[in-house]
Amino acid sequence: MSSCGAPDQSLPANVDAGKEIVLTGKVTKGGEPVGGAFVRLLDSTGEFTAEVVASDAGDFRFFAAPGDWTVRALHRTGNGEATVSAAGPGLHDVAITVA
């Protein structure tokens, strides 16, 4: 059981992007991927929901309920955040730049 694994771009076989809301993206700095950031999912009121560690290539992924989300990345070289509106099932891309 891994709770904060570092996901790659592909989805696990048991995940159906036609049914689930998947928030996925990459953490970058100056156009280059940043690995190992702590990526936090915050709900529309700013409340903490989940946290994962981005992979070496900067990738992260969350499963979420419908709604507006803020994804915030913390890294030793800087922090950054982005918002994403997920109305329904599918892959919702969210790119985060840390500075």
Binding site: M1, S3, T49, A50, V52, F62, F63, A64
Partner: peptide
């Protein structure tokens, strides 16, 4: 707490 989920959203 409310009974919507049995575990944190990112855990089994």
């Amino acid at each position: 707490f409310s009974g919507k989920l049995a575990a944190p959203a990112h855990l089994p």
